[in-house]
Simulated assay, not measured.
Amino acid sequence: MSKFSIRNWLAKLLLVMTALFAAQSLMAADSPYTLTQQAADKLFGDMKANQAKIKQTPDYLRTLVRQDLMPYVHVNYAGSLVLGKSFSATTAEQRQKFFAAFDKFIEQAYAQALTLYSDQEIQVQKEQLNGDSQATVRVRLIQKNGQPPLNLNFQWRKNSKTGQWQVYDMVAEGVSMVETKKQEWGALLRKEGIDALTARVEKAASVPVTFGK
């Protein structure tokens, strides 16, 4: 083999190895664990930087949730789980209106939950994979004064269309938000239909974020 051929072959090999390394790095960067850590760092960093504004206007937490957390949430999939068997009895327009309301509800619920945060230590544990498209990431909030830690499990799913990992449920101390809302709203959905449920969810989503007295 000539020197030119060897040089050309080595160049191609280096190119392939570089591409493979870049692909592996991208996969690692997009893992549920890494994404959870990334979101947590950004969110709590923004909260610390805006403490005065948050205390004056607690609803500002919704802005932080919208920009730091909601891009990771698979709202439509979570909403379809809440609708359950009733999903097939709805029109595409009805579902879109419900998903839009549910999106705002998740924003409000997460923002309200953040009012309980008081600079606790956050520990993000490595994800537990369930097949190729499901994963669980546990986040532990280390409490002060010797209280036991709070365990939050974030359920992730790889979007079949985009290939991106997204959160579809949060399980706090064994209680699933999706299952809780499915049970809470199920009777209204079966009795009065999705339009009535959408109105209920819109009302819940509009409740201002407040600090406990």
Rank of each mutant, 00 (worst) to 15 (best):
V178F: 01
T162F: 07
T198F: 00
Q94H: 07
L15P: 02
T90K: 07
L15N: 07
K85A: 14
M27K: 15
T180S: 14
A113K: 07
K55H: 13
Q155M: 14
T36A: 03
K191L: 08
A172G: 04
M177V: 14
L189Q: 07
M17C: 14
V209H: 03
T115N: 03
A29G: 06
A39C: 13
V175Q: 12
P149N: 13
Q108V: 06
Y72R: 14
A113L: 03
Y72Q: 01
G186S: 04
S88M: 09
A52P: 01
V175F: 10
L152E: 13
G131K: 02
M70Y: 03
D30S: 09
Q24T: 07
K97Y: 07
W9P: 00
K48G: 15
A22S: 11
K213Y: 13
R7N: 02
Q155H: 14
Y60M: 05
S206P: 05
L20M: 10
A135E: 11
G131Y: 09
G186F: 01
S25V: 07
A40K: 13
A39R: 06
N50E: 11
L43K: 13
T34G: 15
G186M: 04
A199Q: 01
I6F: 13
F21Q: 10
Q67G: 02
L188A: 12
S118D: 15
I54N: 04
V16W: 03
S118I: 03
V75T: 09
R140Y: 11
Y33L: 00
S118W: 03
F21I: 06
Q123N: 06
L114Q: 10
I6P: 00
I122E: 11
T180F: 10
I6K: 10
Y168L: 02
G131S: 03
S80R: 03
E184Q: 15
I142M: 09
V82L: 12
L13F: 08
D59G: 02
S176G: 12
A22V: 12
A52K: 03
K213P: 15
N153H: 11
D68V: 04
V175I: 15
T63W: 05
V209Y: 01
A39I: 01
G174R: 01
K144S: 10
F105I: 02
P58L: 07
A113Y: 06
I54Y: 00
Y168M: 01
L83I: 03
S2M: 02
E202Q: 05
G163S: 00
K53S: 00
Q24W: 15
D30L: 14
K213V: 13
T162E: 09
L26I: 14
I54M: 05
S133P: 00
W165M: 02
M1E: 14
Y33R: 03
S86N: 14
M1H: 07
K126A: 13
G146H: 09
K191H: 08
I194M: 14
V73A: 02
T34A: 15
P148R: 04
A11M: 14
A11Y: 12
G212W: 11
A101C: 05
Q134I: 03
L129S: 10
N76G: 09
E121K: 08
E192S: 13
M177A: 15
S80Q: 12
L150A: 13
Q51F: 03
V171K: 00
L43N: 06
A49P: 05
A22G: 10
P32A: 05
A92F: 14
Q143A: 05
V178I: 06
P208Q: 08
V124C: 04
